[in-house]
Amino acid sequence: MHNFEFVKPGTVAEAAAALTGEEAQALGGGQTLLPTMKQRLAAPETLVSLNGIAEMKGVCSNDAGEICVGGGTPHAVVSRETASSYPALSKLAGMIGDPAVRNRGTIGGSLANNDPAACYPAGVLGSGATIVTNTREIAADDYFQGMFTTALEEGEILTEVRFPVPEKADWQKFLQPASRFSLVGVFVAKFADGVRVAVTGASEDGVFRWSEAEAALSADFSAGAIAGLSVPADGMISDLHGTGAYRASLVKTLTSRAVSGA
């Protein structure tokens, strides 16, 4: 990879200042960014590591009953820390990549990248979580703006994610065995005021909510409630791992399994 200047600030404020530089890029766990840089698909002049910022690490809960995950928290820690408080989120975090990737990759890095097959976007959108940055709070519904595109401004740092805890939830991932990403993944969460269904890996526009299923499941939270629905193959990713029609079919199958598993 091309060389760059490496800086490792100890606070969010220092990191934000460092990111105002020309061609500066934030580094989370680096499990996507470093391989991307090796391929010379990215070549920042300055890499600002967020790994030395203690205030961005860890999992806690707030007065509103939300689970707050620091943006620099590795997947393995999220999985461990939410095992009893939010089992579906724990399951999702514990199935990302492989153990070594989970020890290094962070929730903030995953969400800032917004890979169309990444797992966290489905968990965050499906939970209706709030993305907290160094400057503002962004609702999950406003945050994801298409493949590799988010509401984050240049240099904005994702510091925390706040998850409301649903009554019931489940994560179903159909593994793409070579990449360990989701071929398709579905996160279903049932709240007192309705059901959210978020799908990753399927659409060319990245993570999305399957609103027809949400409406049906909000009226009747059972796998049978979506039996009559179908997902159109238009706009679904088609590649050597699966056609758009195959992915569309998986969306329904996995949603059904998630409802049963919740």
């Binding site: 490496f6 490792k8 580094l27 680096g30 470093l34 020890n103 290094r104």
Partner: peptide
């Protein structure tokens, strides 16, 4: 913690 040394910067583990 087990990590992949090819995907970690030396300077980041000072």
């Amino acid at each position: 913690e087990a990590v992949k040394a090819c995907s970690v910067l030396a300077a980041d583990v000072d």
